[in-house]
């Protein structure tokens, strides 16, 4: 599998670490309560088809990435920097 890092370009899967659903970007407010945190930490949709995921370019530039990947075909539709996605969303 190949992933196009927005900083480094097309790289081999071995350089990356998979962290799971991009839901982890949206940490609840500290006073949101433990139900909200429980949902944040443990509950995942895991749908077939397109998923938003967090990847870490661990053996590369060390950027955390948000990728849209079709989990049935392994095709990446988009890859962006998590920091920019987070800051842009605000």
């Amino acid at each position: 599998m190949r992933i196009t890092c927005p900083i480094c370009g097309d790289r081999d899967l071995r350089e990356f670490h998979y962290r799971g659903a991009a839901k982890l970007m949206h940490r609840p407010a500290p006073d949101a309560g433990d139900e909200a945190f429980y949902d944040y930490v443990h509950i995942r949709e895991n749908p077939p088809g397109l998923n938003r995921e967090l990847w870490f370019h661990e053996l590369g530039c060390r950027a955390w990435l948000v990728a849209e990947r079709d989990v049935t075909s392994h095709e990446f539709k988009s890859v962006e920097l998590a920091a920019e996605a987070k800051r842009g969303a605000k």
């Binding site: 950027a63 955390w64 920091a83």
Partner: peptide
């Protein structure tokens, strides 16, 4: 180190 990178980039890029 990976956790710190996660916190700095994904949780609190500000």
């Amino acid at each position: 180190m990976t956790h710190l990178d996660f916190c700095a980039q994904v949780l609190w890029p500000e």
